[in-house]
């Protein structure tokens, strides 16, 4: 079996695991920019993706959700197709889910499906592998629904240039993409409704 990564097992109990993972994802989007501990007890060594991103993909994907995989994660295509039946390998602009192995492999947010004014829910959702900041080196100020006042968001490995991209995403509200930051053992959400500002630069621009 190990030579056929596409046939690696999925969740042992789909119903219970997907419920648990979904509640975590819902918690992350409704309390944004906060890393929730993700005890990936579902994770298997044979999974072609890191456990948190893999669990989220198994929970949310199916035949209705075309997926785009970043180059380092292309190897997971067969596995996702086998378990979830999702179309894999189309253009990033048309995908419902974008799975990226690192912020560097993420296509420009503006190039992704933004949804329409009448149906902003038809936009893409991004799942990107991230790291918890070791030294809090990129303090951003986050503000929006789900946050009881502004909070410090430490970027989780997102590039400095991401801030401009996110401003563009925020300016298109209610259109725009939503992001899940999937770490080794944590998950954080960045919904389109949240504004980010450079904390150090004294930029107090909010919604």
């Amino acid at each position: 079996m190990t030579e056929r990564p596409g046939l690696a097992p999925g969740f042992e109990d789909y119903g219970l695991s997907s419920q648990r993972v979904f509640r975590l994802a819902l918690g992350c989007l409704s309390r944004p920019c906060r890393a929730l501990d993700f005890e990936a007890r579902e994770g298997r060594p044979a999974w072609p993706l890191p456990p948190v991103a893999a669990a989220l993909a198994l929970t949310l994907l199916d035949s209705a959700t075309p997926v785009w995989l970043s180059p380092s994660w292309r190897k997971a295509g067969d596995w996702l197709r086998f378990h979830r039946g999702c179309p894999v390998g189309g253009q990033a602009e048309k995908a419902a889910f974008i799975l990226a192995a690192s912020p560097a492999e993420l296509p420009p947010l503006a190039s992704l499906n933004q949804g329409s004014d009448r149906y902003p829910d038809s936009s893409a959702t991004v799942i990107v592998a991230s790291v918890l900041p070791l030294d809090g080196r990129r303090p951003w100020l986050a503000e929006g629904p789900g946050l009881d006042g502004p909070v410090i968001f430490e970027g989780h490995g997102l590039e400095a240039g991401f801030l401009d991209q996110w401003r563009g995403n925020r300016a298109a509200y209610p259109r725009g993409v939503d992001i899940f930051l999937a770490g080794e053992k944590h998950l954080a959400g960045l919904p389109r409704s949240v504004s980010l500002a450079d904390f150090s630069g004294g930029d107090s621009r909010c919604m």
């Binding site: 409704s30 199916d62 959702t125 939503d178």
Partner: peptide
């Protein structure tokens, strides 16, 4: 459940 869950995530993102 899965399609409802995806709808719920969108709903939370666009209050």
């Amino acid at each position: 459940k899965r399609l409802i869950r995806r709808a719920l995530l969108k709903a939370v993102a666009v209050p």
